[in-house]
């Protein structure tokens, strides 16, 4: 077992051990906090597919995150009120229905955004993904049907057969299992022919094109899968907060997702989890110490970018094998 794999294993066990211990000690809030870590890590793992493997710096992944959240919120509100949704479909409070809908919709929007954005590259790509996310954001703020700026409350957390989702520990376990599945999927993709092509397209576009692979198609596929995973995380996040609002779509959210990846270590399998854990811990600890916590959070981020290249995992496990 390599050193990085050992650290990954420890991280995965820690994320399970902390809430179990907290639950046992009667501190359910830390279970909630761990759930937040798991969900943010899933969202960032999705982004890591595009950003870490494909080198596609998307500054608009909040669009998919928020979209997933709104799928959960809108289906739940229709399920609650009994009013039919479009095309005669009715709402639902069943997570196993909500998740596929969130994934498919995020994928479709990912296709639309990716198809245009991937015609550009470099800074243009960063900015056009930001612009698309802003477009979705303003739409959500101004569209009155689902609460606009006020957002949408999910009064009772959505259901999963056989699980009491309102209990923090049960909901955490759902998220934990999905996170591990997502990380597993990331590993499978990275090792696959498709994953190799995606990474090759990042490292040398010309060489990839000469061996007959179209970088555009590979990247678009990668971008769509990335959007789907982030969308699923959004649906879980809405259920965690029992609330969804346009702030899930804001550019600060997109920035935070990037931050998580870099804090943990770009392109690394467990980078997003390490980053999410660190970020939530900072936010929680600093928020308790000082009103000026955003200043210190910025300072820490800056120091990590300048002096700790490779993020937390880079520090612990040494340089990544791939560039």
């Amino acid at each position: 077992m390599t050193r990085e794999n050992l650290i990954n294993l420890i991280l995965a066990m820690l994320l399970l051990a902390v809430p179990v211990a907290a639950n046992w000690l009667g501190q359910p809030f830390y279970v909630t906090l761990a759930t937040r870590v798991a969900i943010l890590a899933l969202a960032a793992t999705g982004l890591n597919l595009a950003l870490g493997l494909g080198g596609l710096v998307s500054f608009g992944h909040a669009a998919f995150f928020g979209l997933g959240g709104y799928v959960a919120g809108i289906l739940a509100s229709h399920g609650f009120s009994g009013e039919p949704l479009v095309f005669g479909f009715s709402g639902t409070n069943q997570m196993w229905v909500i998740w596929p809908v969130a994934v498919v919709l995020a994928g479709l929007v990912g296709l639309a955004i990716g198809a245009i954005s991937l015609r550009t590259s470099g800074v243009y790509f960063i900015m056009i993904t930001l612009a698309f996310a802003q477009m979705v954001y303003y739409f959500a703020v101004s569209w009155p049907a689902y609460g606009g700026e006020d957002g949408l409350s999910i009064l009772v957390r959505n259901q999963f057969p056989g699980v009491m989702t309102m209990r923090p520990m049960s909901f955490f376990l759902i998220c934990y299992v999905i996170l591990l599945t997502g990380i597993g999927l990331f590993a499978v993709i990275r090792a696959s022919r498709f994953g190799s092509a995606l990474q090759a397209a990042r490292q040398n576009e010309v060489r990839v094109a000469t061996v007959g692979i179209q970088p555009y198609r590979i990247r678009l596929t990668g971008f769509i899968v990335s959007a789907m995973m982030t969308g699923l995380a959004g649906a879980l996040f809405a259920d965690l907060n029992r609330f969804v609002s346009p702030s899930m779509l804001s550019w600060h959210m997109s920035g935070e997702l990037i931050v998580l990846i870099i804090l943990g270590g770009t392109g690394r399998l467990f980078g997003p989890l390490a980053g999410a854990a660190l970020y939530v811990a900072f936010e929680y600890a600093l928020g308790g110490i000082t009103e000026r916590w955003q200043f210190f959070l910025g300072l820490i981020l800056l120091l990590v970018v300048l002096f700790a290249r490779g993020g937390l995992l880079g520090l612990l496990a040494g340089r990544a094998r791939h560039g």
């Binding site: 501190q27 809030f29 909630t32 907060n241 029992r242 702030s247 928020g287 916590w293």
Partner: peptide
Amino acid sequence: TEDDAQKPELAVQIADKMIQS
């Protein structure tokens, strides 16, 4: 007293903490 930074998600997190912890 805690700061919500005008972010709904953060407010929810603080509320959970205040109630549960």
